[in-house]
Design a protein around this nucleic acid. Structure first.
Lengths: 214, 214
DNA sequence: CTTGAATATGAGCAACTACTCACGTTACAT
DNA sequence: ATGTAACGTGAGTAGTTGCTCATATTCAAG
């Protein structure tokens, strides 16, 4: 996946493998030690590649991050697209929560290295704003869903609720990423979704009570 | 607050001020750019101090982080002590949640720079494990509280629930730290606590239903 | 087998980083 | 006023970092 700062685009099979290996190791190192805590020489060493080779594929250090992004951005766009066009109208809350949260969890399970970009405090502003934009799309849709399921809720309140919901999912992803046990990941996901469901249902009851009072 | 790697302990009033200014600016920079992304020369420049002076107080770069810790660790220990000895027995869930969460929020509002240590991926292992230990104490106590409020819940399940609850609070603190509007912070806190309350109450109802079935 | 393009290498360079030290300045006790 | 301990300085040093380039090896087509 050639980026703006890439050098030679790998043409032979072996070099394409190396390209991928470099990205794998770089992602791990960035996750462990952060961007500026990782040296290009160490990336090369861990990938069993000379620095010279590394710089044949990546024009500079940040080009590695950019390429890393390219790896996942397509898949992430797909997930986003799916989510914002999803209709959860007739479903009970817990099923709706499953439908909206599971794809996000799946994405992070499939691409665990993505965490290094996602959590990293040192990614480029453009990348950060691109991911924010996708986040925002999803949150806006979830807000619609919420306003639908909790009739009478004010848009401001709904916005705040969605922010909190989104944050909870985000922290779940962090927990899942750090853990190594598949069973733990599954339980944590169930428990978190349980919480989201309980919250949304409680909000619906609350609004119903308010409506009945008038 | 002299640490192991400190040099001269500041004795005159002016130099004590400088010492504090260095810590203030360093905390900001660590938060913005991470530990390894921040240079000691930049810290000195931002604190209007020569690097020479900086190294009179701090033996090396990580001594700055250690001193930064010293600033907050006393206060944090107090909060932890309060939390784990707190009795929320007769209170309704929402009041109990308030009592347990508010002190944590308060701490982070009072010491916003603490976030740079708390979120930083690059703090020392000792400091990280010390903070983990305090976390663990609080979580263990919250688990007891939960098992008390949700009779019949299994310890394993309770542990998982507490993990999720703790994570939600943690992400709330992140949100609060990033925001600048006091009103937003307050609303976010209320909404998050609302979610925690709804969740705990739902768990209690669930266990009651299960108990009635037998 | 030959040839040229692609790929690989790592010593080395310029820039930067953490940190030192010799020297100058300020504050305070006597 | 003087001595001295505390404080302050910033050019300089040794080591590290991102990155280059001259040279060597591998590949595939004719």
């Amino acid at each position: 996946m050639p980026e703006s700062n890439s050098r030679r685009v790998p043409k032979q099979a072996r070099s394409q493998e190396r390209y991928e290996v470099i990205l794998d190791r770089a992602a791990k190192l960035f996750l462990e030690k952060g961007f500026s805590g990782t040296t290009t020489n160490e990336i090369a060493r861990r990938a069993d590649v000379s620095i010279g080779s590394l710089y044949q594929y990546f024009g500079n250090k940040s080009a590695i991050v950019e390429a890393l992004t390219g790896r996942y951005v397509v898949s992430l766009k797909e997930v986003t697209e799916d989510l914002i066009t999803m209709d959860t109208g007739g479903l009970p809350t817990s099923a709706a929560v499953d439908r909206l949260v599971d794809p996000i969890i799946m994405f992070h399970l499939n691409y665990p290295e993505f965490r290094s970009l996602w959590l990293g405090a040192e990614i480029s502003p453009e990348l950060r704003s691109a991911m924010r934009a996708m986040d925002e799309e999803v949150l806006a849709h979830v807000q619609e869903v919420l306003e639908d399921r909790v009739p009478g809720i004010s848009p401001d309140r709904a916005r705040m609720v969605v922010t909190v919901l989104g944050l909870s999912v985000k922290s779940l992803l962090g927990l899942i990423g750090r853990s190594s046990s598949a069973a733990f990941k599954a339980e944590a996901a169930i428990e978190t979704k349980h919480m989201l469901t309980a919250y949304i249902d409680e909000l619906a009851r609350e609004q119903k009570r308010l409506a009945a009072q008038e």
